[in-house]
Amino acid sequence: MLSVALTEAAELKPAAGLTDTASYAAVTFDFHRSNPQLLRLLMWESLQRRRISPEAAQRPAAPGTDDETARFVLYGILALATWAQALPVASSMVFGGTPDPQGLREGIANAVEALVGPRQ
């Protein structure tokens, strides 16, 4: 069930053509805000300690980075972009109340850009 949901999500999420990580984070935020059922399924599957097979997992690819680094970058972006929807109480604690979704979206995109921006 999780593999099917992830495949469907990959087809629905408008990430094709994005060339920067900040835009990917913003689109991911929007996607999960509009599709909360996927995060619920992921959290439920985690509670049951199920794992998907490596074959079912998509391999991230980022130009100029090794595969392991690309995986950690992708994992970090997904964590930032989904945390507010997955754990709204934690977001309220961090931001001192319910954050404005548009401000949160922009803040996440800016944070991702700062974290993965060009190295000096």
Results as ranks from 00 to 15, higher is better:
A90H: 07
L12E: 15
P118G: 15
R50V: 10
R71F: 08
S91L: 05
M43H: 09
A10M: 05
L115I: 07
A111E: 14
G103A: 10
Q58F: 14
L42Y: 08
Q58D: 15
E113H: 13
G107A: 10
V116T: 12
A57T: 09
R33V: 08
V4K: 08
T21A: 05
L42C: 08
L104Y: 01
A62W: 15
D30Q: 00
T19H: 04
L38N: 08
T82L: 05
E55G: 14
V89T: 14
T21Q: 01
D67W: 10
T65G: 14
N35M: 03
T28W: 06
V4Y: 03
E55K: 13
N110Y: 13
P54F: 11
A57R: 05
A16N: 04
A22N: 08
Y75A: 11
Q48K: 06
A90P: 09
P88E: 04
A84V: 06
L47Y: 03
T28H: 00
D67R: 11
R40D: 15
D20H: 07
L104A: 11
R49E: 13
R59Y: 00
A111T: 14
L80F: 05
E106H: 13
F29H: 06
L104T: 01
L47G: 12
A10C: 02
R40Q: 11
I108H: 05
S3P: 11
T28I: 02
A81Y: 02
Y24G: 00
E45W: 10
P54I: 02
G17H: 06
G97Y: 02
F31R: 05
Q120N: 11
D20Q: 09
S23R: 08
D67M: 07
A26K: 04
S3K: 02
L115T: 09
L42T: 09
A15S: 07
T65R: 15
I52R: 13
F95S: 00
D30I: 00
S91W: 03
Q58W: 12
D67H: 12
R119E: 15
R71N: 10
A84G: 14
R50I: 01
H32S: 03
L80P: 02
Y75D: 12
A84E: 13
V27D: 00
E8H: 05
A86H: 03
Y75W: 08
G76I: 01
T69G: 04
A57L: 09
A84W: 00
V89W: 14
F29K: 00
A62S: 13
D30H: 00
L47F: 04
T98F: 09
A109E: 01
E55Y: 15
A86C: 04
D100N: 09
R33W: 00
I108S: 06
A79V: 07
A22Y: 05
L74K: 10
S23D: 15
Q37N: 09
D67A: 11
E55D: 15
W83A: 01
A16T: 10
R49V: 01
S3L: 01
E11Y: 02
G103D: 11
F72L: 14
P88D: 03
A90M: 07
